[in-house]
Simulated scan of single mutants.
Amino acid sequence: MAGRFAPRPTRTTVRGGHVGIPAGAAAGIPRQAAAPPRVRRWTPDGPLDLGLVLGPLRRGPADPTFRALPDGSVWRATRTPAGPGTLRVRGHGGEVLGEAWGPGAEWLLDRLPDLLGAADDPDAFVPRHRVVATARHRRPGLRLTRTGLVLESLIPSVLEQKVTTDEAYRAWRLLVRRFGEPAPGPAGTGERPMWVMPAPRTWALIPSWEWHRAGVDDKRASTILRAVRVAARLEQAVGMPAAEAQARLEVVPGIGPWTSAEAVQRSHGAPDSVTVGDLHLPGIVGWALAGNRDADDAEMLRLLEPYAGQRHRAARLILLSGRVPARRAPKMPRWDIGLI
């Protein structure tokens, strides 16, 4: 990890967490590949922490599309406009080594710098509160990733609507493993193969009982089905400014400001797309900046006004600070949709 201090644990890991390297764990990826990878070397212009930059792309510790290994490498299996691809990224001296397999290999390597935050400008951020300044100082390697892919961030964000993260992670894991395809290269083999998420048409053909088996209610399933039917139009939003991209996503019934912000934070590396409508974030921001654990969205946005243009980065640094109010109520209960 870049910086002097070890990361503090955070309760909200979806947006603020750091992907740690499981020291001493089995590698999980076979050493031999069926075909040699395509390779690109890139030198960042400042500190770079792969766990911080790529961490928001992981949907739970058992995400079949994401893996962090003890050798310091991070693996991604994704569906690009050129087809499925697997990307392995690791630090190598003062540079980053990217290796890719599959039809989407060239696409992934072409966009490797953006994925690792080259399009981000962390120097544009000016801390206005001590807690934010301290979090930034302790994590100089934080940059905002830009995947250039909308659907791969949108679908799991829809699955996370109104449920616990455990339920959403389980649904994503089950659906990707059942209807996706093995990741190209060595990641798609072995005891714990990685998977590429389903193509839009495959999502559209998932039977209703399979959504039910994965614990996804009709409302979220219907939202995903509506989104994949206009997948090409949604992917075109990558070329738009983040605010316009969010507006396009929100045309789809069932996609609101919470979901659209979660998607463009990853697809666009949007520094100002703050998440509104979240169950915990307003209270965390309110507590960190004003000692107000009962803050609502309006109060959160007021507190983040000094960070206009960089509100998402500010919120993420607050999440990484570990300064969160103590829990006052039990966790949100898990629901069995078969009983609803």
Rank of each mutant, 00 (worst) to 15 (best):
R178P: 13
Q161W: 08
G117A: 05
E99C: 09
V126P: 10
D120M: 11
E99P: 00
L112F: 10
R88D: 00
A171T: 14
A119K: 12
G141I: 00
D166T: 12
E95Y: 03
R88S: 00
R177V: 02
P122I: 00
T86C: 05
P81S: 08
T147N: 09
D166N: 08
S157W: 00
E152C: 04
V150C: 14
E167S: 13
H137V: 15
R130T: 06
L112N: 07
G98F: 02
W107G: 06
R90A: 03
T164A: 14
R178E: 12
G104L: 15
L97F: 03
E160I: 00
G104E: 07
T78Y: 04
L116W: 04
A118Q: 15
G102S: 09
P182R: 04
R79P: 02
R88T: 00
G180E: 04
F179M: 12
R146G: 11
A119D: 07
R177N: 08
R128H: 13
V96S: 01
R143S: 05
H129E: 13
G141F: 00
L112K: 09
R178W: 04
L109A: 03
G180H: 08
R90K: 14
R79M: 14
R88E: 00
G180L: 10
L144M: 11
T165C: 12
W101N: 10
A135F: 07
E106K: 14
R173V: 01
P81L: 12
D110K: 09
L159A: 11
G141A: 03
P81D: 09
G93K: 01
I155K: 08
S153T: 01
R136S: 05
V150T: 05
